[in-house]
Design a protein around this nucleic acid. Structure first.
Lengths: 228, 228
DNA sequence: CGCCCAAAGATTGTCGACAATAAGATTGAC
DNA sequence: GTCAATCTTATTGTCGACAATCTTTGGGCG
């Protein structure tokens, strides 16, 4: 499942849009490593395009804060520091908490049923401990993604899906996160869904915030251990 | 006081950056009216520049969702619907609530003293009922702006100051909002600052969220009355 | 030997021109 | 008279080239 706000057509009409998607993926997945300088002539040649559309794509990457640009100097892929990662968690706590509240109010019964099915699938995944690293983290984002979609707030969806989730994914690719929190996280997910199913927005928000806060603290601990 | 995240140099180095600022201002203040089509040749001629930098600026405006663009067709200034305005309030409730909590934890005593001074100034402004319309709304944003700055979360600051506040301002220019809530709002501001001064993040968040929720409801009522 | 200055190289920013797509107008047919 | 199709026109998307700026390399001076 692709993490984007709207269903994008197979091949985007304009080169600038296509190159934007490609570059974003390349950056998020680390193919273009963090901190590396982005040379317009080189990249244009690599993708077989002109510098015009490339620069337009770069301007959008700049807005997504995936690259940092200095006038007359050039652009570099951002390097996500631990502080920045924790900042993202804080914002997600606020926004996704609200998303959970809205989802409890607006989500259709069918969508909730779907969400429950997703969780049962995750439950079987967690049972097979081996697969942990990759599939579970991907599943975690998938869960959050659906809650946000369920909020029905288009702008909220955009902020989270067009920017923050890409950054979160980038961080994960950068550090090869393997969380030992899979079981706990799953349980927390279940509680959130339960609250949503009961249409208890207040509780859903509270649970979602606690869930993300716990994730942040786990990451904080892992970062501290890494540092030593 | 200019509503931007970082202090921008007097004149920006590159044309694309400068034209971005100018266009954003023109759109926010209604000089380029909502829904109007943006013709690249016309605008380029108007500003005496080429289409290259203009298109780069447009890509950034697109990312800020101030213009909507269809491939091979063109770009139009967005028209803020009432639904979208309310969506923004919801997001602000979540984000600024969190900002208030963080401000209570991180803000320096000097900054808090500054904030208090700002409020006393607003208090005298409110006393002179005449000035209401313009200065008070501007002051309202100024207050929120400072709280967000006080959070110390750079990304949070960016989201609010680079996108949402411009949208809020655009809406205000579009509808010439005069709120009858000045006195209530000021009181709510004072409570928030008090909580921050006491370093009570929990309460600060709660008060800020209630404040924004009340503003949203007032706007909702006004929109409903307008509609009839 | 190290530091500073200058020139060469490379890269970014900007421009005008061409190609491709979409909107609008004109003409023809029913 | 209305609809449809085609042609015209205008706008968007893309490209290559030039100008301005920064970086780097080389040389000279202290």
């Amino acid at each position: 499942m692709s993490i984007t706000a709207e269903a994008l057509p197979e091949v985007t009409a304009t080169i600038a849009d296509r190159i934007f998607d490609q570059l974003r993926q390349a950056i998020v997945e680390g193919e273009i490593p963090p901190g590396s300088k982005i040379s317009e002539p080189v990249l244009a040649a690599r993708y077989g395009i002109s510098r015009g559309p490339l620069r337009e794509a770069m301007r959008r990457l700049e807005s997504s804060s995936l690259v940092e640009r200095k006038p007359n100097v050039g652009a570099r892929v951002i390097t996500l520091t631990s502080e920045q990662l924790l900042e993202i968690y804080v914002i997600r706590e606020a926004l996704e908490g609200m998303a959970a509240r809205l989802a409890a109010e607006h989500m259709s019964d069918a969508a909730i049923a779907d969400l429950k099915r997703l969780l049962t699938r995750h439950r079987t995944d967690v049972a097979q401990e081996e697969w942990q690293t990759y599939f579970q983290k991907e599943g975690d984002l998938d869960f959050h993604f659906r809650i946000v979609q369920g909020s029905g707030n288009r702008r909220l969806i955009n902020i989270l899906c067009n920017d923050l989730y890409h950054l979160a994914r980038m961080y994960r690719c950068q550090f090869g996160m393997k969380s030992d929190r899979a079981r706990d996280a799953l349980k927390e997910h279940e509680l959130v869904v339960e609250a949503i199913a009961e249409r208890d927005g207040e509780l859903a928000e509270w649970l979602m915030r606690r869930h993300i806060r716990k994730s942040r603290k786990a990451t904080e601990r892992r970062l501290a251990a890494m540092q030593e």
